[in-house]
């Protein structure tokens, strides 16, 4: 149990954030479709406010318990701060080389390179899409820019519950946005989760309230 109390998002706030995420994900999906030359099915965004200790179980719940995954992390800061974690289902990470038109068996380092590239495209397009919308209706939270760290591999072929070690996270609570991109006939799934700490939750709350008021 943590001492910090975080108010959950109201239904309206959740709904507005879901729609912002939905629009942003459309742009990310389109970038991925172009890169892989395939039709990408988009999910309905899922939004949760969780305690950090619950993150492993939550990720397992969102991604699936009985599969091995690989994950790439990329932190962002500026107008919003947090971590984008891109999780690839095991068959998907191996199908990537094939989707990108590589022939034969790729070495581990080239495979990792592919995961980093795709992760970078998804998080960049999705967060970029969110920022673009935010810029359209808000001016009061300072310049709406983000900078990204280099993406790095955080896990290879592990159960989703093992991607994050809560002991290494300095936050108590996290806002978690999850969207996923599926290429049905290729067995490819990538989950994009965006995690933001306590102050980020309040910032997002302010943004969506402004969005709601602007409609």
């Amino acid at each position: 149990m943590s001492l910090t109390q975080i108010n959950p998002l109201t239904d309206d706030q959740r709904d507005a954030l879901q729609e912002l995420t939905n629009i942003a994900m459309g742009q990310a999906g389109s970038s991925l479709a172009m890169l892989l030359d395939a039709f990408v099915d988009l999910s309905v965004p899922r939004i949760r406010v969780v305690e950090v200790v619950e993150l492993p179980a939550t990720l397992a719940d969102l991604v699936g318990k009985n599969i091995l995954v690989s994950a790439v992390r990329q932190s962002f800061q500026g107008y919003l701060r947090g971590e984008a974690i891109i999780i690839f289902g095991e068959p998907g990470s191996h199908a990537l080389a094939d989707l990108m038109g590589y022939e034969g068996d790729l070495g581990e380092s080239s495979q990792a390179e592919l995961l980093l590239d795709v992760a970078n495209i998804l998080s960049g397009a999705c967060l970029g899409g969110m920022m673009e919308q935010i810029r359209n209706f808000t001016e009061t939270h300072g310049p709406a820019d983000l900078s990204f760290s280099m993406p790095s591999i955080m896990a290879r072929d592990v159960p989703a519950a093992q991607i994050i070690d809560p002991k290494k996270v300095q936050w108590t609570h996290s806002l978690l946005l999850e969207v996923n991109f599926t290429i049905k006939d290729r067995n490819f799934v990538a989950h994009l989760t965006m995690l933001m700490p306590e102050d980020g939750i309040e910032k997002i709350r302010g943004i969506v309230d402004e969005f709601i008021a602007a409609i």
């Binding site: 629009i23 459309g26 742009q27 389109s30 039709f39 988009l42 919308q133």
Partner: peptide
């Protein structure tokens, strides 16, 4: 009216009888 801006999504819905496609926002 969709955030899915893939050209194939647009083609699909038109083939299924939609008269138009408007992207979000």
């Amino acid at each position: 009216v969709s955030a899915d801006i893939q050209p194939i999504a647009q083609e699909r819905v038109m083939a299924m009888g939609a008269i138009a496609f408007v992207k979000k926002p």
